[in-house]
Amino acid sequence: MRLDRIWTVARKDMSEFRTNKYIIYSLVLMPILIAVVLPTIYLAPFTMFAQPNEPFDINIPDTDIRIGETFNEGTFANVTFINCNLENVVAENCRFESCEIRSSLVRSSHVANTTVINGAVMRSNVLNVTFDGSVGSDTRILGEDTEQEGFLFQFIGFLMLFFILIPAIVPTVIASYTFVGEKLNRSLEPLLATPTTDAELLAGKSLSIFLPTMLVTWLSFIPFVLLVNFLATPIIGHAPLPDLTWLIGVFVLAPLFCVMSIALNVIVSSRVSDVRASQQIGSLVVLPVVALFVISLSGLFTLGPLVMLAISGAIGLVDVGIAYLTLKTFQREEILVRWK
């Protein structure tokens, strides 16, 4: 297989795409929709009304530390309590570690590994605190995701799945023009009469679909990450993207889905003689991605790096099988005699 011939075919096809407005629309509009419009529409309103969860900036001097003591009534400020029992106290700007606090009011403090009974904790950072008949108001829960953070992560994951959807859908549009278009244009016969092998032609044509598709996918990933981080960081307290799971998703799984989509569309193109029919049937390739959406949203399992790698491996194997079938389909005689 000669790489220069593959590149010649790919470059020619890409030159043609530049003049096809439908391909240009697909390559430009879909990434804009997914990378900019969707996160803006769905995340911006949520982040506007969500409570930020950054820890309060509270500085407690280490000068007054009480360990293992019991306090009944009193007002405290700038004190660190470790393993203490407190009742009927008012504390401000204090630190509580492994304490039991009863019928008390705590403000602007750090409370950790502590049980609060019949009291109130206000404007404080809390970590592993049990509230028993107590109220926590304007607290920042450390060490675990709040409900809204959980929703945000799930939603970001949902939006990330679109980055696997782009490389599955865009080839449907392009392949329908490159293969069915050549058939309709009757330009396949002189092309097949050149000393180019079937595999070189197939690889060149596939490359011409793969390169622009993955380029727009990866390019649109950058504004998406920036936008999501800009909107979600105040709520979560850190930048949620890029994380390892979605780096594998976008840079390993997405190209594999793209290859699958191209290969399936070549097979579809060989059986239809109409661009729209090719697009409609070819678009069924998104079904595995939709299945991934459903599984992800149903919470059957969390999409972690290992799960993502396992899915990538499975799709990779499917790709090898479909690529073999495609090579069998894309043969000169088949194309000229049987391609309708």
């Binding site: 220069d4 011939r5 010649t8 075919v9 020619k12 030159s15 043609e16 003049t19 096809n20 244009n185 009757r186 330009s187 396949l188 016969e189 002189p190 092309l191 009469a193 050149t194 000393p195 180019t196």
Partner: peptide, 28 residues
């Protein structure tokens, strides 16, 4: 060999020069 099929089968969006250049490249 050179083949002129019954239908010209050219790439309509490309220029005449680009059409010929593409084939010349495939023929080395």
């Amino acid at each position: 060999i050179g083949l002129l099929p019954e239908m010209p089968g050219l790439y309509e969006s490309l220029s005449a020069y680009r059409n010929l250049d593409f084939y010349a490249q495939l023929y080395d």
